[in-house]
Design a protein around this nucleic acid. Structure first.
Lengths: 187, 187
DNA sequence: TTCGTCATGTAATGGGTTACATGATTAC
DNA sequence: GTAATCATGTAACCCATTACATGACGAA
């Protein structure tokens, strides 16, 4: 997850750890903020795998003297890293539909192939629909012995699932009309 | 989390691990299903802490001969376990507002003191409101350079947060009117 | 002068997961 | 006969967290 997100951000532009973390928070809409305790070791790991590398900072004349200030370590993707990231983007297996994984995938959808986008959206929708089904049957079976609070929890969860399905359906529709337009551009 | 949920279920009635897992799934509305790989070790841990104990199964005449069938290990809360669970229920610290923790708390709200319920609901609401704020400011700052998909992700997250706040507000209102009714019953 | 932010890092821990092993029972 | 469900358990791993350590810079 963290690896995927880091590679995706570095695919746009080289960055150092601290900035990466801010962008990570923004990327996922504040849903998730990674701690430094996981960020820096992950950067090390990615470096030792050869997927990222410390980029030699250009001697920037316009930059402030950088006096005593701690040196920032700017990372960039290596060719291997780019390849690996492309592989992650094209991962359409069920793990791509997991709650968190899906969020990252969506955040990098602009870099994802159109047909992979569609598969991921459809897979995610099916996943949420299944969970929704599970919830409704569970609700029906246990409805009598549930107290008000548990029922509220279930119903709120159910509604959230419903909304996500509708949202995904919209995205899918948008996607398919776009794709049609792209396939037959001269109409 | 798992410990809390297990104690809560066993507070209702003694159960064996396998059943516990099913009930766990129902309890959280299918939001979360724990694996056996975490369930059984947790039961052991709780037992070694003295919070639960294997309950001697009554020689039940009406039960099937139990021929070769693997023996089920039924657990029940010990007095220490009851006490500990009561402490968890009354935990009003910020951890109670965490996404998952809050779900478990709500599921056991029927056993929670009314004033603790209110504090937890209000704390949770403030938490979600804060996240919502963070999202909106992040959205405003980054609006131009966000692609369609990332924006969709943010907006969906924002809406989900909004809905949760409204839901919590309803629960809080219901709670306060109930409390008032309980405080002055003769009206 | 103190607080917030910038900036990187380590150590210990936590709380789960998957995969595997075992084996009986029930329903099709 | 074969698949699903019941039932318990272990071992290896994963992916993150918190708490800590260190230190400079700018703003109130």
């Amino acid at each position: 997850m963290l690896e995927f997100a880091i590679l995706g951000l570095l695919a746009e532009t080289p960055m150092h750890g601290y900035e990466l973390r801010k962008r990570l928070g923004e990327l996922l809409g504040g849903l998730r903020a990674f701690s430094f305790g996981s960020l820096y070791p992950t950067l090390r790991r990615l470096e030792s795998k050869g997927l990222i590398a410390q980029s030699a900072p250009l001697p920037d004349v316009s930059a402030p003297p950088l006096s005593g200030r701690r040196a920032r370590i700017v990372y960039e993707l290596t060719p291997d890293g780019k390849e690996h990231f492309a592989g992650l983007l094209a991962d359409v297996s069920p793990t791509a539909y997991d709650d968190e994984q899906f969020g990252v995938h969506l955040a990098f959808f602009a870099k994802t192939r159109a047909d992979d986008r569609l598969r991921i959206l459809q897979g995610r929708r099916r996943r949420v629909e299944e969970r929704r089904e599970g919830m409704t049957t569970a609700l029906h079976r246990t409805a009598e012995r549930l107290d008000r609070y548990t029922r509220e929890l279930h119903e709120h969860g159910l509604e959230a699932a419903d909304r996500e399905v509708r949202w995904l359906t919209e995205l899918i529709e948008h996607e398919t009309t776009d794709q049609t337009a792209a396939e037959r551009p001269a109409h």
